[in-house]
Lab assay of single mutants.
Amino acid sequence: DEVTIHLGDKTIRVDGLDKELLEILKELARRGADEEELRKEIERWER
């Protein structure tokens, strides 16, 4: 499953996201997290 996250004018595509992680990323994005913060969160989950 590829998920596309839209952040204002930026788009991040991620393969096979965990549903819980997806919810966390959506919440972070709502709070104004930037792409770098979201990537760090994704990397934390992948470990």
Rank of each mutant, 00 (worst) to 15 (best):
D1T: 13
D1L: 11
D1K: 11
D1A: 10
E2I: 14
E2F: 12
E2A: 12
V3S: 13
V3T: 14
V3D: 12
T4D: 12
T4L: 10
T4N: 12
T4P: 07
I5F: 00
I5P: 04
L7G: 06
L7N: 05
G8Y: 01
G8T: 12
D9P: 06
D9H: 06
D9Y: 00
K10V: 13
K10F: 12
T11A: 12
T11R: 08
T11L: 11
T11Y: 01
I12T: 03
I12Y: 01
I12Q: 02
I12V: 06
I12N: 03
R13Q: 10
R13K: 14
R13S: 10
V14I: 14
V14L: 15
V14A: 09
D15Q: 05
D15N: 04
D15H: 03
D15R: 09
D15V: 15
D15G: 13
G16V: 10
G16K: 10
G16R: 08
D18W: 06
K19W: 12
K19G: 07
E20C: 13
E20Y: 07
L21R: 02
L21P: 00
L22V: 15
L22A: 06
L22C: 05
E23N: 10
E23C: 02
E23Y: 04
I24F: 07
L25P: 00
L25V: 03
L25D: 00
L25F: 01
L25M: 01
L25G: 00
K26G: 05
K26N: 13
K26D: 06
E27L: 03
E27T: 04
E27V: 02
L28W: 01
A29E: 08
A29I: 15
R30Q: 12
R30H: 09
R30E: 12
R31N: 14
R31Y: 06
R31D: 10
R31E: 07
R31P: 01
G32P: 00
G32F: 02
G32R: 01
G32V: 01
A33Y: 09
A33S: 04
A33K: 03
A33H: 06
A33W: 06
A33M: 06
A33P: 00
A33F: 09
D34N: 15
D34V: 06
D34Y: 03
D34A: 10
D34P: 11
E35W: 13
E35Y: 15
E36K: 07
E37F: 06
E37G: 04
E37I: 09
E37K: 04
E37D: 13
L38T: 02
L38I: 15
L38S: 01
L38D: 00
R39H: 04
R39L: 12
R39I: 08
R39P: 00
K40N: 09
K40V: 08
K40G: 06
K40A: 14
K40C: 03
K40T: 07
E41W: 08
I42T: 02
I42L: 08
I42S: 01
E43H: 06
E43D: 13
E43I: 04
E43S: 02
E43P: 01
R44Y: 12
W45L: 08
W45P: 02
W45K: 03
W45R: 08
E46L: 11
E46Q: 12
E46K: 03
E46C: 06
R47E: 14
R47V: 13
R47N: 15
R47T: 15
R47L: 13
